[in-house]
Design a protein around this nucleic acid. Sequence first.
DNA 1: ACGCACTCCGTAAACGTTTACGACTGTATG
DNA 2: CATACAGTCGTAAACGTTTACGGAGTGCGT
Lengths: 356, 356
Amino acid sequence: MQTEGKSQSMKGIRQLAEYLDISIGTVSRALNGKPDVNEETRRRVLAAADELGYVANQSGRSLRQGETKVIGLMIESSKETVENADNFFLGVTSGLQSVFARHKLDLIMLPCPSDEDPHEYLKRMVARRIVDAMIISDTQRVDRRIDFLSRAKIPFVALGRSLSASNFPWIDLDFEGVADHAVERLIALGHRRIAITAPSSEANLGYLFIESYRRALERHDIPFDPSLVIRVKSSEQGGYQAAHELLLLEERPTAVILIYELMAIGLYRCLMESGVMPGRDLAVIGFRDAPRARFLQPSLSCFRMSLYDLGVELGRMLLANMPVYREFYPGDGRNIIWPLELMAGESDAFRVGVMA
Amino acid sequence: MQTEGKSQSMKGIRQLAEYLDISIGTVSRALNGKPDVNEETRRRVLAAADELGYVANQSGRSLRQGETKVIGLMIESSKETVENADNFFLGVTSGLQSVFARHKLDLIMLPCPSDEDPHEYLKRMVARRIVDAMIISDTQRVDRRIDFLSRAKIPFVALGRSLSASNFPWIDLDFEGVADHAVERLIALGHRRIAITAPSSEANLGYLFIESYRRALERHDIPFDPSLVIRVKSSEQGGYQAAHELLLLEERPTAVILIYELMAIGLYRCLMESGVMPGRDLAVIGFRDAPRARFLQPSLSCFRMSLYDLGVELGRMLLANMPVYREFYPGDGRNIIWPLELMAGESDAFRVGVMA
DNA sequence: ACGCACTCCGTAAACGTTTACGACTGTATG
DNA sequence: CATACAGTCGTAAACGTTTACGGAGTGCGT
């Protein structure tokens, strides 16, 4: 009624063609930048499309050419993720979009319900042909999603290694480097008993993290003590519990490496309740950038990264694995170990032996 | 090659029909639970579909029936959102999905790139027919998205009021109730000079919040002092700045109400740097549940809510506004003011005058 | 034998796009 | 003048579904 009189009659490309008195084939070619169309008519079509607010119906297009121009980022909306609240994915999203925008690809996030099996969810989404390609994360040690995507030949990239398929594109955080660097640093400060936290889940990262920690210790002739590997949840709550267990050890460690930065919040709290001062009585080093931990006191020494840059690299790697876009990203193969940078804080800024 | 020999031949409903030696029409009817199909054949079709791993191609289906069975949740991936990191949306998502699952609707999250106008982004997504309905949030005081969706007759529900359209379905947080409750509580504890923070943006919530604060004050014959309304960003950084400005006021307030709980982290820090102790020298009350703030010391008094329940209600309201599902949600009309619950902490647990 | 109702199923059109193909110009080339 | 070719455009098929319509078969009552 009170609309501009244009958009109301806008149903599809047919109306646009009638409006211009041109065949729909030409209109389609004009819009999609195909060569065999007069530049003058292309100009007219573009102008009319803009004026009438025409945008191609995705269903029709997808059906015809078998692709959706949509990339899916699968995330887990588990309770733990919500609790931890580090907006990790939103950070990565910006980087991804900056790459995808160049090819008019849209990114959607697919939150797997906590009561549904991630593998089933993924299969459902892929089968519905709602996306052309997938980005998955939180890869498990053996992850059926990876086998499925490989076999179904759906382009994808994983954030996190896995033992599942022998050969698939992934980017993973440099757990080895971090564990190594942290241990070296603490040993240089005089520490000998260094505790570390490990996830209780089947996530792959835990194994790599601990293994690297172990090797770094042995390189300095410090025997590996299994009791110093504390298995807790990677959350604030887990941090609290870690501190609790840590304080109960007969020979108390002088340092602890946290696999997830947020745990520091709970850890600090438990320590302080027991009169143990982080950064003086116990050295603490964190891992993976979580903005929540930035305001801790004493400030936390931790390893950080640019989520945006990580997103960019994920995007490039994905496109490099899609036939249509491969040519644009010749160098971007696969298997990047993503480096992290140490931001030195006050939480480990002391030499051991002074107060002990 | 090494696939099971089933899924490789699985292209569409046609293959399924050939496999069963049945027409595709019957297969479709069987799968969709239409009445005129023999129960025996239906059983066979279902079994075969399961065996061959057939799932209907969404593009074909959408094209035919003009709906996608997908609901979009639009979120902003602005830098500020990432920084604040409260996983607000993931929390809401679970509630939404629990409702949508009953109708086999899928939820996708649409992150608007920070460099794109939200209105344009929304238009693009809707025009592409990628979703049937929309959930929008972060509504502005005047929000073109609301006009657009109303006029285009796209079912939607907004998280947040707006002045744009006279009449549209929304749920909003009970800013008035919170401001009112907070002021009353502080006055009861003897406070007379109560500061409050307000967003610097055009978000609608700021106006409602301040207005309620003002009325509550005037009800107790306390004159409204504009200098006590501190306009800062709703972030940790903003909290820090708020404390800074607050300490510079000639007649220092004895209490402050924060419009966003996370600001408390920055606020605490700035206060402590100046030797002002929250919970003793200054009362602090927060708003809106942010898990990051839970571990503050002294513990923060704040207003909280169940994100899950909020999601459920949003979902119901949306479906109540969609012709197909309306009948299932007769009671769920519109315009809910979402209540919040005070969780009393230590940050305002003192009577004024004792130390002042 | 016939009509009727009912159950079940096949046929074909339709949804909005893209694109292979061919048709029609006009111009250059032999 | 015939042919070739480039430039431009229209035609129609195809993508995978759903669904209105009608037809075949069966059972039953007249």
